[in-house]
């Protein structure tokens, strides 16, 4: 594949995909129910849903760890189950960071752990080293930490090291399953900010599974809402977050600013629709107050 092609690649398409756990036992459960969905490159898609809505199952289907019972999954137009023997290649293309990825670290040093993925790709030593350093940077890991044992790091640092281990494979599609679960606000910002800069730098497809409406409001471009193994809604941020009834019906919440916006709009104040973060809301409201003040003075 030439460079031009790989720049435009990274489309993941699901066609009528279903997945059932424990088929033929009393524990049978349909986790994914006839999903049709496309993830486009060049944006961050937030995958949100209540616990048990099938988010984690969906992301495992996307990189071939689970095989769909029905339907097809296409990555750049190729069915990922056409050639099961070449699944490894797929995994280098579709990188998946699991929930609590820090428990997968095993090497003696962080550097070697991050290099595990790239060395499975049979890359040259220099290329591996370049990728290790670069991915550590994206994840906000200091270079001096690279030569420590992963078990000496703090929880947040370990999480970053684990994410760096997947990013070092430079996948066209990067999927993160709850990358910020259990982290403090600073850690969340750092990791999600790093993912955003990775996405912007590589123009790749990034899919983030999350519970946090605030995080998704801040960092995602598109939102997919899941409920009981189905896609309840999908679209741009504004479109999805404006349907607060649907979100609450799916067992979710709306970002706090959206709630505030609804109250203010209910009182007849005109506000722009595309505001989801506290910072942006502050700016908008301050501007509004200033202009209000000026009109008062003008009178």
């Amino acid at each position: 594949m030439n460079q031009e092609n790989s720049n435009s690649a990274g489309t993941v398409e699901l066609r009528g995909v279903s997945y059932i756990y424990g088929r033929g036992t009393p524990f049978e459960k349909k986790a994914i129910d006839n999903i049709n969905l496309t993830f486009e490159p060049g944006c961050i898609t937030g995958l949100i849903g209540h616990t048990g809505s099938g988010k984690s199952t969906l992301v495992q289907l996307l990189n071939g760890l689970l095989k769909p019972d029905e339907g097809r999954i296409l990555v750049d137009g190729v069915d990922i189950w056409d050639e099961p023997k070449k699944q490894n290649k797929l995994r280098f293309k579709v990188g998946l960071v699991f929930q609590y990825p820090e428990y997968q670290l095993f090497e003696e040093t962080v550097r070697r752990d991050i290099a595990y993925g790239p060395s499975n790709m049979k890359l040259s030593g220099e290329e591996i080293e370049r990728r290790v350093v670069e991915s550590a940077k994206f994840c906000g890991l200091d270079e001096e930490l690279l030569d420590k044992s992963p078990f000496e790091l703090s929880g947040g640092q370990r999480r970053r090291a684990a994410i760096a281990g997947v990013i070092a494979m430079e996948p066209r599609v990067l999927i993160l399953d709850e990358p910020t679960a259990g982290l403090d606000p600073m850690g969340r910002e750092d990791i999600l900010g790093g993912m955003r800069s990775y996405q912007r730098a590589r123009n790749s497809t990034v899919i983030i599974v999350s519970h946090s409406m605030e995080d998704m409001a801040r960092y995602s471009d598109r939102i997919v809402v899941m409920k009981n193994g189905r896609v309840e809604a999908s679209g741009g941020r504004t479109e999805v977050f404006s349907r607060s009834d649907m979100l609450i019906g799916a067992g979710l919440d709306v970002p706090q600013i959206t709630r505030l916006w609804e109250i203010l709009k209910g009182r007849g104040i005109e506000l722009p629709d595309d505001v989801f973060t506290v910072e942006r809301a502050c700016e908008v409201l301050l501007d509004l107050l200033r202009t209000d003040l000026q009109t008062v003075k003008g009178r």
Binding site: L65, F98, P101, Y103, Q104, Y116, N120, V166
Partner: peptide, 11 residues
Amino acid sequence: RIMSAQKARGA
């Protein structure tokens, strides 16, 4: 889970 995670890294 760990096997899947390492498989995702090309194991």
